[in-house]
Computed example of a mutant assay.
Amino acid sequence: MTPQDLANTHAAAFTQSRPWTATEFADLLANRFTHVIGNAKSFALFQVIADEAELLTIATHPSHQRQGLALQSMQDWQAMAKKLGATRALLDVAADNHPAIALYKRCGYATCGRRKGYYLRENAEKIDAIVMAHDLF
């Protein structure tokens, strides 16, 4: 999967906020701590540093949603993170992204913090980020 493939899927999935560009994906993937799993239908991009993993973004193309691909991407990236030595996983999610919050809760994540006004919507509305964590045992 190329950075452009990632950017295309991300743009299709993220319609309420600015999607990431191919250059941004390329820059992230150049970092030895950054990993990606999945394909153009659904992917997860994450970092593992020491014993901690962070989900940077996850995206499923709208034409492939509601097929269990996001759940599979979650399971796959967490399994890879564990193999890389992570014992704890973190992520943040927009407080108004109810489908993603439900997915993360289904995967065992619990809220551990909040970042006020972290996400900026296209209409300039600021949305809080919910920080969630999960032990990877």
Results as ranks from 00 to 15, higher is better:
L56G: 01
H35Y: 12
L45G: 00
F25N: 02
A50Q: 12
I49D: 09
A44R: 03
V48P: 02
T57G: 00
A53H: 04
F33Y: 15
F43G: 04
L6D: 07
R18S: 10
V48C: 09
F14Y: 14
A44I: 11
F46L: 09
T34C: 15
D5E: 14
G38D: 07
H35W: 04
P19K: 09
T21D: 04
A30V: 08
L55I: 15
F46V: 11
H10K: 04
T9H: 06
D27H: 10
T23K: 09
H35T: 11
Q47W: 10
D5R: 08
Q16A: 14
R18F: 07
L6I: 10
Q4K: 09
F33I: 04
R32P: 14
H35D: 04
N39I: 01
P19C: 09
I37Q: 02
F14P: 00
I49M: 10
F25Q: 05
L45T: 09
A7Y: 09
A12C: 06
E24Q: 15
A40Y: 03
A26G: 12
Q4F: 00
H35Q: 12
I58F: 01
S17M: 15
F46G: 06
A22I: 05
A11H: 10
I37H: 00
A7L: 07
T9S: 08
A13D: 04
F25P: 00
A44C: 09
T21I: 08
A40T: 11
Q4P: 00
A12I: 07
W20R: 05
D27N: 14
F33P: 01
T23Q: 13
N39C: 08
D27R: 11
A13L: 06
F43Y: 14
L6M: 15
A44T: 10
N8L: 04
L56P: 00
A40H: 12
D51L: 02
K41A: 13
L28V: 07
D51N: 10
E24L: 14
N39T: 06
F43R: 09
A59S: 13
E52N: 11
F33S: 12
A50N: 13
F14N: 07
